[in-house]
Design a protein around this nucleic acid. Sequence first.
DNA 1: CGGCCTATTGATTAGCCTCAACCCACGTGG
DNA 2: CCACGTGGGTTGAGGCTAATCAATAGGCCG
Lengths: 232, 232
Amino acid sequence: MTFNQIFERFSSRYLPASLSDAAMMRFRALGRALPVIREAPVSLDENADHLVYVCSGATKLVAHASAGRDQVVAFHFPDELIAVPARAEHSYTLYTVSPSELLVFDYADFADLARGEPAVLRMLLDCARKSLGRCRDKSLALGRKTAPERLAGFLVGMAVRIGAPQDDITFLDLPMSRRDIADSLGLTIETVSRQFTLLREQKIIETVGKSGVRIRDLLALEARAGYLIEAA
Amino acid sequence: MTFNQIFERFSSRYLPASLSDAAMMRFRALGRALPVIREAPVSLDENADHLVYVCSGATKLVAHASAGRDQVVAFHFPDELIAVPARAEHSYTLYTVSPSELLVFDYADFADLARGEPAVLRMLLDCARKSLGRCRDKSLALGRKTAPERLAGFLVGMAVRIGAPQDDITFLDLPMSRRDIADSLGLTIETVSRQFTLLREQKIIETVGKSGVRIRDLLALEARAGYLIEAA
DNA sequence: CGGCCTATTGATTAGCCTCAACCCACGTGG
DNA sequence: CCACGTGGGTTGAGGCTAATCAATAGGCCG
């Protein structure tokens, strides 16, 4: 895919139609296309914040702690926009999880340019707030939920984001490895694997190869996810 | 403190000086002062997002899971601005942790009004991004760090935010209870208490009554917090 | 001074991690 | 074409951290 095609997708999704051609050109000048890569860290300058548009593929944002411990802070799928922070007291790295086409901006430059375009600022704000909401939900899961609840919640979330409904079954093709899932849920790969087995034994899901999951009973998954039940 | 005084503080900190009087009045019209309350939930309409300015006191934003499990998503101290989300798949509640004076806005109304004021939008964006950064750090701690690391990281963070340096010692007056700390760190009160005891035994901190902490060795705390050490 | 709530300390348990073996799909080269 | 190697995933046994259950101590109020 050419840079122009990628930018076109990005702008039609995230830039207002009302934007002048001149302004559009200025945003375009800030973008840099990153080619398809297989499961690799995305090389970004660690001293600056970045804005990354996922055109195709999938990525994970990973936070690093001492002793080689990693925490996947978020996964991203096609047509999503991510803010990647510069190195701070914890350092963060963006990785592709499957072959991907990315569009990268320097965050500060982009935001400065958006100063003259309230609709773009508003879009950045909505984007940050959506990430914040997801991150808060993740904090709740990591701090207070059990392993079965975490995996159930993960699968429900993936079903919403990348699930393919077929009849009353939802099919998932998970692009990330068991290790990625474990690092996202704050568990080990063994625990994740055991939870998959339990869900399989209870006929709630079926697994197809390494990455396929057929969700047979989405309601059962939701019931397991530990969401607060509203008293009627 | 009167509404006018509270709004004045808020506007001098968060609204640009360049704002016209008319615009200022419109923002002011959206605000609602909430009086001093002792350790209580802040009553907000659960169906809308809110923007809350903490003028004095301290608050906690709590996410609720099933079975009465709570996770403190963030603490807030004077002069901070918070986005409180509406009820979603997890519900959130803002609580005061000590007597507080709050200024409350409807988020949608505020953001709509900010449409005409890029500087205000930019401020909201910076605010959301700061919260997101803190939340990501918290996810790392909850997912991958041990109990000693979590408490050390918590104390370092509090030292930065509300610590009073005295000579080479930092004094902390923690407004929140052990339960709040436990709910913030994804631990139990007993574990938090044991970790305080360990830090005391190792002469890294001293505790003064229930809420006072004297940090004698901030470097030792930082070393315990599990931050990624940069290879030179 | 007595009651009450929070914090601390102690003993035991449970859930997840660690370590280890095994399985399976896939790719490679003999 | 099949033996082999490799890397991810699954399964099993035992250990460890933090939770749970229970009791005591300490501030803070009347």
